[in-house]
Nucleic acid binder design. Sequence first.
DNA 1: GCGATGTTTCAGTATTGACTGAAACTTCTG
DNA 2: CAGAAGTTTCAGTCAATACTGAAACATCGC
Lengths: 158, 158
Amino acid sequence: MTPGESLFVEEMGQFLGSLGMTPMSGRMWGWLLICEPAEQTAADIATALHASRGAISGTARILASAGLIRRTTRPGDRREYFSAPAEALDSMLASAGAIYRQMREIAERGLAATSDRPAATRARLQEFHDVMSFTEIEVPRLIAQFLAGRVADRKGRS
Amino acid sequence: MTPGESLFVEEMGQFLGSLGMTPMSGRMWGWLLICEPAEQTAADIATALHASRGAISGTARILASAGLIRRTTRPGDRREYFSAPAEALDSMLASAGAIYRQMREIAERGLAATSDRPAATRARLQEFHDVMSFTEIEVPRLIAQFLAGRVADRKGRS
DNA sequence: GCGATGTTTCAGTATTGACTGAAACTTCTG
DNA sequence: CAGAAGTTTCAGTCAATACTGAAACATCGC
């Protein structure tokens, strides 16, 4: 790994770390975005990131369940291979939508808890709820359209 | 604060806490979304949340700099009043845009660090970059449109 | 200028949680 | 079945950090 690549991997780690995921998640995903070959074993990744097997194992679960990485196996090879597939972006936008949904749900419970208050008081929370409600649907749709357009583009050119 | 309200405040705390902000940020913002009166002093908030003055002070800085709350003063009153203004949502979408921008920038540095690699290798990161680039612009625009529509709606009805 | 009221800063504490590394478990080969 | 290769689990450690509470710092009225 060149110094520049190492910097990129570390930046991804810090960034996803600051967003509530573990730094290792960011490092591993970042590495899988630039590594060669694209498919790497747990041992490969542990070596590249100077991390323990245990950390890779746990992080792989997180990333796989989030849909950010793919686990594949090969006939006659007991090892598992990890890679960052193109579909990861679909998963990303889906989880972005999940965050908005969570906020809407919290807002809804808040509105229920303040149902006896005058409308003026609840307006603040209501507005928040409405924006989340809109965003939850429309942002994933917007990105899905963009991705669909890109796929069509690729097909058209090929 | 009723049990339901307390639950809402605590949920907001956990939620923003899970997203990299401090739990107190979430609690304070949640409280300011439902409290009555809408404007509260630092002492009011500290009492409502069973938190120390120091925590309120620090959290107020964070929330105010993020644009999520507003600090106001009144003539003849030395105290500061905090409230969650409607414009907070503008700030929220702006900071959402900032997150996408950050990811685009990291991706760009990653692409620069791998400029000597074959295009096939860089395709993964390139796609990620392109989506972030698109999202960075279009998501804030989408939400801004929605907010503008709501304002027009309110004016029309009044 | 001095006391009172309100706010911020900051050292200390306690908790959380990310990562390590070894042991347990699984799965394939001879 | 025995052994090897690979993966996961988990107790322990270490660092990060959210919060407390007291002291320092403004700001205003007398």
